[in-house]
Structures are given as C-alpha cells and as structure tokens.
C-alpha cells in the first residue's frame, strides 16, 4: 500500500517561513554553494601558492 500522505507534496500545519535574510531559501542555498566554491578555490589557491 502506498502511503501518499507522507510524500513530499504533503501539506501540513507547520509553516515553512522564509529565512531572516535574502528573502527566499533558494537564494540562501545559492549563497552556500557560492561560499563552498569560494572555499574550494581558496584552498586550491592556497595549495598552489605555498607549494
């Protein structure tokens, strides 16, 4: 039996409020990805510079 009540489309009482900054969660996720890319680039630059 498929319990579709608990599939991702399920809507319940608990609201998913917007984040305190940037207006939407999608923008926050992009920010985290950009931050990760920056950290990797910095780590790569760090490796190249000091070796």
């Amino acid at each position: 039996m498929i319990n579709s009540t608990f599939m991702p489309t399920h809507r319940a009482e608990m609201p998913d409020e917007p984040p305190p900054i940037l207006g939407s969660w999608s923008r926050i996720y992009v920010l985290v990805l950009v931050y990760l890319a920056l950290l990797i680039a910095l780590s790569y630059g760090f490796t190249r510079y000091f070796s």
């Binding site: 991702p8 319940a12 009482e13 998913d16 969660w25 996720y29 985290v32 990805l33």
Partner: peptide
Amino acid sequence: PIAMIVISSTSVRLFHR
C-alpha cells in the same frame, strides 16, 4: 555543504511536518 542544502530543502520539512 551540498548535503546540508539537500537535507534542508527536503527531509527537515518532511520530518517536522
């Protein structure tokens, strides 16, 4: 960080609800 984005956008909401 990639995993945290995936979890934030999926399971956090589902588990809470």
